[in-house]
C-alpha cells in the first residue's frame, strides 16, 4: 500500500458516497446517468468475485463490500425509489456498444484464460469506459449540478492517483500490470475535458455548462 493508492481509494470512496448522498438528500437523480451506475455495479460485481475465493485484508474486503453495496444502492435509488426523477431521455448512450467490444477484448487480451481472470479483465476494460454515458448525458443536457461535478472530479481523480500508484509500484516493487495501466490511462484521459471545465469553472464558483 502506498500514499497514491490509499488517496486513490479514498477519492473513489468519496465519489461513491457523494453520489449516494446527493440522490438520497435531494430525493432526485436528475442529471445522473443510470446507465453509468449500472456499468459500475457490473464492474464491481465482476471484479470482486474474489471476495468469495480469497482474503487479502480487512481493508480490502471492507472496501469491496462498501463499493458493491453503494453501487447497487445507487442503482436501486435511480431505477426504483426515485425513478420518477430519472431523466431517461437524456441518458440515451447505447451501452451495448461498450459492453460487447469490452467483453470480446477481455476474452482476447488477458493475463490468463481463466474464468476469474477474464471477468477481472472485463471489469478493468469496462471501468475505463463506464463513465461515457454520464459524460454523454452532460453533453446532451449542456450542464451539470455542482455536486455532480464534485462526484465526477473525485471519480476521475481516483484512477489518476492509481496511475501514480503504478509508477510507484513499478519503481519500488517492480510491479507492472499492462492491462490495468493501459485501461487506467484511457479512463483518466476520458476525464481530461471535464477536468479542464471543472478547474476553470466550478473551482471559480461558476456553474458547469457546456457550450450547447
Amino acid at each position: 500500500m502506498n500514499v497514491f493508492r490509499l488517496t486513490g481509494d479514498l477519492s473513489h470512496l468519496a465519489a461513491i458516497i457523494i453520489l449516494l448522498l446527493k440522490i438520497w438528500k435531494s430525493r432526485s437523480c436528475a442529471g445522473i446517468s443510470g446507465k453509468s451506475q449500472i456499468l459500475f455495479a457490473i464492474v464491481f460485481t465482476t471484479r470482486y468475485l474474489d471476495l468469495l475465493t480469497s482474503f487479502i485484508s480487512i481493508y480490502n474486503t471492507s472496501m469491496k463490500v462498501i463499493y458493491i453495496g453503494c453501487a447497487y444502492a445507487t442503482v436501486y435509488l435511480i431505477y426504483m425509489k426515485f425513478r420518477a426523477t430519472y431523466d431517461g431521455n437524456h441518458d440515451s448512450f447505447r451501452v451495448e456498444f461498450l459492453v460487447v467490444p469490452v467483453g470480446g477484448l477481455a476474452v482476447l487480451v488477458n493475463h490468463d484464460f481463466s474464468f476469474l481472470e477474464i471477468l477481472w479483465t472485463f471489469s478493468i476494460y469496462l471501468e475505463s469506459v463506464a463513465i461515457l454515458p454520464q459524460l454523454f448525458m452532460i453533453s446532451k443536457t449542456g450542464e451539470a449540478e455542482t455536486i455532480t461535478t464534485h462526484y465526477l472530479f473525485c471519480l476521475g481523480l481516483y484512477r489518476a492517483l492509481y496511475l501514480l500508484n503504478w509508477i510507484w509500484r513499478f519503481y519500488f516493487e517492480s510491479f507492472f500490470d499492462m492491462i490495468a495501466i493501459v485501461a487506467g490511462v484511457v479512463q483518466t484521459v476520458l476525464y481530461c475535458d471535464f477536468f479542464y471545465l471543472y478547474i476553470t469553472k466550478v473551482l471559480k464558483g461558476k456553474k458547469l455548462s457546456l457550450p450547447a
Binding site: 481509494d9 463499493y67 477481472w120
Partner: peptide, 10 residues
C-alpha cells in the same frame, strides 16, 4: 505464479 493471490488492488 507466486502463491499468494496477486490482485490486492481495488
Amino acid at each position: 505464479l507466486d502463491d499468494d493471490y496477486d490482485k490486492d488492488e481495488l
